[in-house]
Amino acid sequence: MAEDQTDEARAGQPRAHTPLLEWLVAGLGAGLVLATLGFLIQHSQTRDQTPPAVRVEPAAAVPVATGFLVAFTAYNDGDTPAAQIPIEGVLVGAAGPAERAEITLDLLPARSEMTGGLFFSRAPEAGELTVRALGFTEP
């Protein structure tokens, strides 16, 4: 009987003395996990609703040792991720035959952006430069 009581007293100890700080940390943890779940549920409402739409915006050309560099930012305006996206730059009318440069972006998640660059031997300002995405595969 006496033993039971001590056992009970000992067993009751952790609950009675769970410090406030532990509950605060627990609340913070629960808040973070619930916020994660909540945001994911919200995200699921839009994800994959529209197909990948890759828009490429070239920056001004910068002279480099071997010619000119055109840095670009590729935006995926769709709600679906895209992979293996060829980015093609075509430069026409810069005193010579049309010049073409291409690079492939590995992965571009939905509503996200990625940067890259294309090299040209002639100054893109002298002609007309178009940079666009040619296609994609689904990851």
Partner: peptide
């Protein structure tokens, strides 16, 4: 970097 928050969160999970 450059990834929408929802997509970041999936990577985090």
């Amino acid at each position: 970097d450059g990834i929408a928050f929802g997509e970041q969160l999936i990577r985090v999970v």
